[in-house]
Nucleic acid binder design. Structure first.
Lengths: 249, 249
DNA sequence: CGGCCTCTTGAGACAGTTCAACCTATGTGG
DNA sequence: CCACATAGGTTGAACTGTCTCAAGAGGCCG
């Protein structure tokens, strides 16, 4: 359980430094740790939601489905990411969430979270920030799909994943485990599985990226960035430890 | 200036009921009202932002640009919508905002906003909610672009706009002023201007929608919904006035 | 062994783009 | 009051990126 608060404190601590008092209240937010199998549905679109989660370990997908079964992935969630926060505020989930890998997560009651925010508004603002950071990623996906072609999209998405994982200390820059199938890439990039396959081949033939048996290897980081027109700006990682004094603290 | 607080209170009041005390503090958040000409840039991607806005009247666009000039519109902002909130939290703007029409808006200092949130956390949660509502719209745009064809996209977007305007009491169900050019439709839907033109023709020829000289007319609401596969679910309007008690209030 | 899931490849079809031209309204200066 | 410029909308024809359909290959598990 100490684990939970370490992850949460680390996440929110990226935004601001908190007082002993605030950290104590954060620690008092008892999250119930649970582990789920791959493919377990955590949140289903349309559900009325009373709890949200923080990912401790593993990957999850956040997606929507059209009536005819087409799927659009909104984002993949990694350790430290919050799940279902938006849905709890909107009361009814506007998207589904499913475990991609075996998943370890902590569950919170929304009421407890609201109480924490009301007692320690500066923590509330930090949660706010985390939400904004997620939204920035979604917005970047929007640009990706609206205005980039298949190769640019895939390159950009790979670089986004790489940057996010690196910050978490998972895998090094250019070779890491990635549990996504080609279908997952297709559904996040708005393409077909078949075309993702060809696009990966394109990048492989040009000696830029290979993806083989769950392991993604970046052969030419520089060329990849050039193809994607990538800047890690939107991930809000590069603030060199500068933090913001919130409110009157 | 009373205008400002009426708009803000109305917006946030959709989420929860507030006490006299809270409303007083909300009213104390003095926003500086200003009016800008069409095409004025309010926020530029990359700027460090210290203020955010609420739209009182008019339309604004929120967009990103690729290095080569391609533009992707994230969303159009209508009266009551908050501008730049995400950017202030991320410190540096991840998108630009421009006035589409002549625009009347109120400007707030982030610091004042943070103070309000810290003093009245329940208002903070309501602002939170407003942000989530915006994000839900962006997510819906994502699905739109990733998994729908041109006709479906346009139909869906028109219905989204219609629903948002109706809630604001602007224009009735099926005939209203819309200041967007075909280029704007193209950039929000990830298509070319030319193809938007053809798609409008498609809808016109089937007697579903016409768009002539800034006025959008829905001829067949039912067919439009059918084409789009539309549900207004994601706009979080349909909660029948049910509100949520936040925290320990 | 057989069944299933994911990846891979090819060939043809189609949705959306590109380029190039023209039209119509609105506004401006002489 | 006309000549001209500009901005947005409209249309056609050729092109291309992505999809669809169909088939096969490799790994994993019961």
């Amino acid at each position: 359980v100490g684990e939970v608060n370490r992850v949460l404190a680390r996440k929110l601590g990226q935004y601001a430094d908190f007082s002993e008092d605030e950290l104590a209240d954060l620690a008092a937010l008892e999250g119930e740790v649970q582990e789920v199998e791959p493919d377990t549905e955590l949140i289903a679109e349309g559900d009325t939601i009373a709890r949200c989660y923080i990912v401790l370990e593993g990957w999850a997908v956040c997606y929507k489905r059209l009536p005819d079964g087409r799927r659009q992935v909104i984002n993949f969630m990694l350790p430290g990411d919050l799940l279902g926060l938006r849905s709890t505020l909107l009361r009814v989930a506007d998207h589904s969430v499913k475990a991609t890998t075996r998943l370890q997560l902590a569950r919170f009651l929304v009421d407890d979270l609201h109480r924490l925010i009301c007692d320690q508004p500066r923590i509330g603002v930090a949660i706010f920030w985390a939400l904004c950071r997620d939204e920035a990623i979604v917005v970047e996906h929007l640009v990706n799909m609206g205005r980039r072609n298949a190769v640019e999209r895939l390159a950009h998405f790979i670089l986004e994943l790489t940057a996010r994982l690196r910050v978490l200390g998972l895998g090094n820059q250019d070779d890491y485990a990635c549990p996504l199938r080609q279908e997952d890439f297709a559904d996040v990039l708005g393409l077909t599985t078949i075309h993702i396959n060809r696009t990966f081949r394109h990048l492989r033939e040009r000696q830029v990226v290979t993806m083989y048996r769950g392991s993604l290897r970046i052969l030419d980081h520089h060329k990849l960035i050039e193809i994607a027109g990538f800047s890690d700006h939107f991930l809000d990682h590069g603030n060199d430890g500068r933090k913001i004094p919130i409110g009157n603290a």
